[in-house]
Measured scan of single mutants.
Amino acid sequence: TTLHFDLDGKKLQYTGVSEEIARLVEELKRRGVDLKEIVRILEELLK
């Protein structure tokens, strides 16, 4: 799965993300978590 974000005018793309992580990101968005925080979490998970 590939995730795309537009953060402060920067286009971020994460490829090869598992379905689980993609679902987690969608859930965080639904809960109103700040996009910067979501990206920070995502980068930690993908290390």
Rank of each mutant, 00 (worst) to 15 (best):
E37I: 09
K47W: 15
G32L: 08
E44Q: 11
K36A: 11
L3F: 03
D6T: 08
L46D: 02
A22Y: 14
G32R: 05
E37K: 08
T15Q: 11
E20H: 09
I21Q: 10
L45K: 13
E26F: 15
V39G: 01
E44A: 13
L46M: 07
L3Q: 01
R40K: 12
D34F: 11
E37A: 10
E27C: 13
T1Q: 14
Q13A: 13
L28H: 06
G32H: 12
E19V: 12
V33T: 13
V25K: 00
I38H: 00
L3A: 00
F5S: 00
T1W: 10
E37Y: 09
T15F: 12
G16R: 06
V39I: 13
R31P: 01
L28A: 05
K10W: 07
E20G: 07
D6V: 09
E44M: 14
I21Y: 08
E27F: 15
D6N: 07
E43D: 13
S18T: 10
H4R: 05
Q13V: 15
L28T: 02
F5E: 01
G32P: 05
Q13N: 08
I21C: 03
L24K: 15
I38A: 02
R31S: 07
I38K: 00
R30W: 12
T15I: 10
L45W: 08
K29W: 15
V39K: 03
I38V: 13
Y14E: 00
E26L: 15
R23T: 14
L46C: 04
L42F: 04
A22C: 08
L24V: 11
E27I: 10
D8C: 04
D34Q: 11
R30C: 04
G32V: 05
L45D: 04
L46K: 03
E26I: 13
D34N: 10
L42G: 00
L12V: 15
K29Y: 15
L42S: 01
G9K: 02
L35Y: 05
G9N: 04
E19D: 13
L7G: 01
K29F: 15
E19R: 06
K47T: 11
L45A: 15
D6H: 15
E26R: 13
H4S: 10
T1I: 14
K10C: 06
Q13H: 14
R23M: 11
K29D: 07
L45E: 11
H4K: 05
V33Y: 13
K10Q: 11
K10H: 11
A22L: 11
A22F: 13
E37W: 07
T15N: 10
D8Q: 04
E26Q: 15
K47G: 11
D34P: 13
I41N: 06
H4I: 14
L28P: 00
H4P: 02
Y14W: 06
L12W: 08
E44D: 12
V33D: 07
S18A: 06
